[in-house]
Computed example of a mutant assay.
Amino acid sequence: MSVALYVALVVATGLERLAELVVSARHARWSFERGGVESGRGHFGPMVVLHSALLVACVVEVVALDRPFLPWLGWPMLAVVVASQGLRWWCIATLGPQWNTRVIVVPGLSMVRRGPYRWIPHPNYVAVALEGIALPLVHSAWITAVAFTVLNAWLLLGFRIPAEERALRGALGPGPDPGRR
């Protein structure tokens, strides 16, 4: 894969992220109209910066450090990128208007326990983690893959997932697994 095609892949990923933000804004309005409560605002800005930096760093590392495309690595990683997008959109479709890039919970709604949420507590975060490793490795940008993975794990495990689980417990009451929506 040429560098130009890789840059096109990263740009396409960025456009997909913008589409997510449009969907998220629509879902946020829906949630707030139904009494939705937002939690965990403090970590949202750093998450946006990190996810934006992932896209920039992918291109910068490949161009500045002349990272090669290694077919034995790049093609499987491209398949993981595509699969992670599929998982992400499966999550969005499953949660419907309850899906959001922010932590907004509408009190009284029941937990969603279908789709990928039947098997994985936080499948959207699995998709993000997979993409964060695979997208840079499509063109062997391993520094970006490692840096994003470490910082993303810190944000998710230290802030995002605990905030989401607290919000779900508060809105839905105690249950077997607040992470499964």
Rank of each mutant, 00 (worst) to 15 (best):
P46A: 03
S84Y: 05
H43E: 02
C58L: 04
V81F: 05
W99I: 01
A93H: 10
L70P: 08
H51Q: 04
L55P: 07
C58V: 09
V62I: 04
L55G: 13
N100K: 05
V62D: 00
W75D: 01
L73S: 05
L78C: 07
L95R: 08
A93Y: 07
A57G: 08
L87S: 02
L55D: 03
G45W: 14
F44V: 15
G45S: 14
W72Q: 02
V103I: 13
V81Q: 05
P76Y: 05
L54G: 04
P46R: 03
G96T: 11
V80I: 14
W72C: 07
V63N: 01
V48K: 13
C91P: 03
D66A: 08
E61V: 11
V60M: 10
M47E: 08
A83G: 14
D66E: 10
Q98G: 07
G108W: 03
N100Q: 05
R67A: 00
V62K: 02
P68Y: 02
G45H: 13
T94R: 06
V80L: 06
S84Q: 07
R41V: 12
G42Q: 13
I92H: 02
H43P: 00
V49I: 15
C91T: 10
S52D: 13
R41I: 12
V80N: 06
W90C: 04
L78S: 10
C58Q: 09
G74Q: 06
R102Y: 00
R67K: 06
T94M: 02
R67G: 01
V63I: 14
G40R: 11
R67S: 02
A57T: 07
V56Y: 09
A53T: 15
V59H: 06
S52T: 13
T101R: 04
W99S: 05
L87N: 12
V81P: 13
L78M: 12
W72L: 07
A83L: 15
N100R: 00
Q85G: 07
G74T: 09
W72G: 09
P71I: 11
S52E: 10
V103L: 01
R102S: 06
W90D: 04
L50G: 14
